[in-house]
Design a protein around this nucleic acid. Structure first.
Lengths: 135, 135
DNA sequence: CCTAACGTTGACGTTAACGTAATATAGACC
DNA sequence: GGTCTATATTACGTTAACGTCAACGTTAGG
């Protein structure tokens, strides 16, 4: 915004929303469910660079078809917080579970890309045939 | 099922559902919206190998976070049907759009895997520190 | 013939992830 | 002071993708 005290590491809600092409409703919703926790200047939300990063991670998760809860779990992995041995071990397990899902997705994507390649080849073949009036 | 005339390329609804771990409700829903079209023996649904393949593709799409409509579009790519030049060109465009999305997903997954790797390393580090009573 | 397992068709319910509309406030500009 | 413009809160609405439940038909086994 046109604000004198914008610390350049602070973002208004519309700043963030324009950058990531989401609506304010979405940002507020993520706050409602505890995925974002911007500070306030009066009533107005002020987003930090960390908030921005979290939003970026959430949206990356969305592109991958993760639920917001999955994204929450993954994001929490970046900030282990107060962690004893037990928590760390379950965190490692969670990491490996997510990793496994991701490898499955990698396989799926590779297969799908192969399928698309084949479909495209077939298309070109059909176009060639049409232009030759063969079929 | 235990049927004498099971052609081995035919599946009952529960066959398919057990194999892919979905409920009959799901299979019927996919039929409702035209994603599956099993034949019938009387009232009972009989799924062919082609139906099975379609279901497999749908579920692969789901794992990737595609909507059923996206999956429908992709699956339709495998059966170009009656296609003139115009349709083929728009199909090729659709293929490239999907391809682009998939490459985006590949990037996202690779980044996320990197993040997980880092998170895991941090975990191990913390565990080491704990066992040494450093922190 | 009875029952159990499997199948069918409605039809209403549910959840996630927001959309949308109404209303109110606070600062910027003329 | 009046008027935008951005922001806030509240609350009901919406869509996709099924879940769930009721009520019913049918086929195989004991």
């Amino acid at each position: 915004m046109t604000n004198i005290v914008t610390h350049s590491t602070e973002y208004s809600i519309s700043d963030l929303c324009k950058e990531f092409e989401v609506t304010p409703r979405t940002a507020r919703y993520y706050e409602d469910i505890g995925l974002l926790s911007p500070s306030r200047r009066g009533q107005t939300r002020v987003y930090s660079a960390a908030d921005r990063t979290r939003l970026r991670l959430i949206l990356r998760g969305k592109r991958l078809g993760l639920s917001l809860e999955d994204s929450r779990q993954i994001i929490d992995m970046y900030e282990p917080g107060k962690s004893n041995t037990e928590q760390l071990n379950s965190l490692i397990e969670a990491i490996n579970q997510q990793r496994e899902k991701l490898h499955q997705k990698l396989d799926d994507i590779k297969n799908l890309l192969e399928d698309l390649k084949k479909a495209e080849t077939d298309c070109f073949q059909s176009l060639t045939n049409i232009s030759r009036n063969i079929s």
